[in-house]
Design a protein around this nucleic acid. Structure first.
Lengths: 341, 341
DNA sequence: TTGAAAGCGATACCAT
DNA sequence: ATGGTATCGCTTTCAA
């Protein structure tokens, strides 16, 4: 591999001079400059970023720590990527499987970030005490961190999330405006912080509309991708008992499952029941009928996270907590409430 | 930041001795070793991977070049990630938007890989002459490349794909076994190489079953995520004219759209029409009915790609072309053919 | 405007 | 078993 030394020898100059030219310093006369550039080009020189970073001890690389599963992960990364590239930074991926309960792997990832001397770290969706793994490691080395899509805020690092509380309220408001009054909420268990926030948004909106007893209209289900028969029975029992005209779900997967169940139970959507999801994942477009959903701005969240990180890298000590607006995508799974309203 | 020098001074030893201990060499007596390790721990030493790589000019980092959109991208990356981490390698992401027609960005990404002295590159789904951007840059610097999910093979770099031809044949075989004879194929335009391969698989399977005239049962549609009215009309016209009892699609999105259309046209799936998709994306689980689909082994493709890359990094010059088996996931969008069979 | 020399943090080869 | 010294490729003073 060609080095500056090689170019210097070839061009009959000193190596530092070559360095100056290649870094665009103006103190070099045009003729020399020309000779260096031409020689470098001819010899196929490629700058060595590693040697370059050794001086400052820093790199133009940021670490991305977090789980990779779920298509929103990808959207967030795409958001980061664009902002990153525009600013001459690169992304090193440090996937961690169960970031929430995986102190060990998280600590390892943080340590690896230090060892690679990344300029900063963006971390996705880690909560609770596992975050300390990052704090102790990265704060000590003065490597800034920004949290994306994390359910709680801390005073020692910035964070970017979507405003889920407001988002759900907007969804409920839309249903109210469509004439619905019996609006149910189907969600993962509320000990998940993010589920809690969304449920609170639902409750707040219902209270604002002076619709009481809405606590009873929340259905908590613990379940994975697969819908067990027990879960199906619970949901269908819930629907039969509560008889909502609309359901606002805590996530898109739940909404999709409700839609599946409606087909099985022969409930017509949106005629008999309106359904709203939460997240705005791509595939909600493909359901039958296409799903009305509250879109989280994942891409922008990634971009903003990088923007904040860059500020911190450049010395800004202020801690930010950004809540980005969601947007309601109205498709065909919602409609006017029928009947006596 | 603490360096080996600092540790050496603190422990009253020379800096190279510290290096030896920290790299686990056995030539150091237990007592000194202990002192070094203890001091390093106490001072919070973190190894500097950058300084370390400067000697060899190589890193334990691989570059991932390619588009990020589509959930299969993520699955491939997850596959790479796991294999990568198991072998002490890291991934640097170099997203390129339209890899197929974007010679410039691709060349830039390749160049950046060289500048960062990555040990190797995995590149996703780039075809045609744009690949030359990679070849000229990376081959010259002796940085090995492996192509994943690329439609054509080249003699200068290894490649890992799914065996789409066999996959489609398996899908058709399954439909035949279910009693279907009028099997149609709906696909993106056949000038896409990957669409062509799948269509060929379809044709081959139909010929094997001595079902002629199947060329007429292929419907080429050019379309994005959104289904335009024109596209809908074309597909519904096609279905009405050809009257298939089953449709095998060139991709999952097409299958999902066919399902949507069936709802609109009041065609019962699978009673009136069986539908099969291709790819096995997560969300096919959520359609109504859940989609039967041919799953591409994206994760394994990523893992295999890394495995090959590692071989090349370690000096293996052989060029490989791996076709990984797909698997048929039978769900509820397919059933026995009704009627006169 | 250019060159000489020092230094970044680590590894590796020779001595001792 | 440990220390000295050269080296990796580059940046950065400081002189000339």
């Amino acid at each position: 591999m060609i080095t500056m030394k090689d170019i210097a020898k070839e061009a009959g100059l000193s190596q530092p001079t070559v360095s100056l030219v290649l870094n665009g310093h103006y103190s070099i006369c045009a003729e020399t400059r020309q000779r260096v550039l031409e020689t470098a080009e001819r010899m196929g020189y490629r700058r060595n970023e590693i040697a370059r970073s050794i001086k400052t001890g820093k790199t133009n690389v940021i670490g991305i720590i977090g789980g990779l599963s779920g298509s929103y992960s990808l959207e967030i990364i795409m958001g980061i990527a664009e902002a990153c590239m525009d600013n001459g930074y690169f992304m090193k991926l440090l996937p961690v499987n169960n970031p929430d309960d995986n102190y060990e792997d998280l600590a390892r990832a943080a340590r690896q970030c230090v060892e690679h001397r990344v300029a900063g770290v963006i971390c996705r969706a880690v909560r609770g005490h596992t975050l300390d793994a990052l704090r102790t490691e990265l704060n000590a080395m003065h490597i800034p961190i920004v949290l994306v899509d994390a359910s709680s805020h801390h005073d020692w690092c910035s964070r970017v999330v979507s405003d889920d509380f407001a988002g759900i309220k907007e969804g409920v408001a839309y249903l109210l405006q469509q004439g619905h009054r019996k609006i149910a909420h189907i969600t993962s268990p509320l000990n998940c912080e993010y589920a809690r926030i969304r449920a609170d948004g639902y409750l707040a909106a219902m209270h604002d509309a002076e619709l009481p007893e809405c606590e009873k209209m929340i259905c908590e289900i613990d379940g994975d991708l697969e819908l067990s028969h027990g879960d199906k029975d619970r949901i269908s029992g819930f629907l039969k008992k509560v008889k909502p005209t609309a359901v606002i779900c805590g996530s898109d997967p739940w909404a999709m499952k409700v839609l599946m169940l409606c087909h099985e139970m022969n409930i017509k959507v949106p005629d008999d029941l309106s359904v709203i999801g939460f997240a705005g994942l791509d595939y909600t477009f493909y359901s039958s009928p296409p799903l009305t959903t509250i879109k989280q701005p994942f891409c922008e969240m990634g971009a903003k996270a990088f923007e904040l990180l860059l500020r911190h890298i450049n010395g800004d000590q202020k801690i930010y907590d950004l809540k980005l607006k969601t947007s309601l995508i109205v498709r065909d799974s919602t409609g006017m409430a029928k009947g006596k309203c």
